[in-house]
Nucleic acid binder design. Structure first.
Lengths: 124, 124
DNA sequence: ATAATATATGAACACTTGCTCATATATTCA
DNA sequence: TGAATATATGAGCAAGTGTTCATATATTAT
């Protein structure tokens, strides 16, 4: 424990802060989970899908038209979002309608948007 | 415009929804920006750095001890966070102290944590 | 000046990611 | 049943990512 703190040429520079930070640090598993959520939001295509679905549900074909992308590309991304439970779907015949399935994601998306708006103001 | 909507074997399935979604869809540049922000949060190491810095500033050496990672790896990630203005730093002699530099990121981090906590409850 | 040390960084490498293309599956319609 | 069509998915490939290793830079101490 204490021994593992030895580094930086055998001397921890700020032992108290290191101990404090170590106590409150999120664990590796939590970090992995968090990273997975943010990874889902770290791609422009998926963000545009989420944006497109923020008002209405849409079928895969509609989505590919809206995004101007191939059905295959959209479908692959939808699978990813589905696996992370960020979107839900319902089937009506051969048509599959996708919709957002997570208020947290809506919040994260909105908060991110605020941030970009903030950034743009800073640059102006 | 209207022509570009033709797809899915020449027939748009839900023209109204497609037009509505197209109007409110975030543009490609915004999507890129947003993706960049979330990308910064999409890696376990960077999330643990953010977590470690959430209370106190820490120097690079302290950080590498806290995270149990090489100084080089931490330094590379700090550069990335620095370039996105997510962390700020101050130099004191040869020691460089890093701290969070963005309330939005703190909020996003917190919101993400809530989500993982929610997920864990769902699984229990 | 020289040695020691905190941090930064380039190159390389394994691994991941997002797309395309081809094709499979499932449902509807004739 | 067989053709048409909405969606899903596997393989493959180009581009991106996170680490290590070696080394550069900058500051302090002798």
């Amino acid at each position: 424990m204490i021994k593992s703190l030895a580094a930086c040429e055998e001397t921890v520079i700020h032992e108290d802060e290191v101990l404090a930070a170590s106590r409150t640090l999120i664990n590796r598993q939590t970090a992995e989970r968090l990273a997975q959520i943010f990874s889902a939001l770290s791609d422009p295509t998926r963000l545009r899908i989420i944006s497109a679905l923020s008002d209405h549900e849409l079928c895969v074909c509609d989505l590919s038209v809206v995004l101007g992308m191939s059905q295959s590309a959209v479908s692959h991304q939808l699978r990813l979002l589905r696996n992370l439970n960020l979107v839900k779907y319902r089937k009506e015949g051969r048509i599959v309608y996708y919709a957002l399935d997570d208020e947290h994601i809506r919040e994260l998306f909105g908060l991110g948007l605020e941030h970009t708006a903030h950034q743009e103001r800073m640059e102006a």
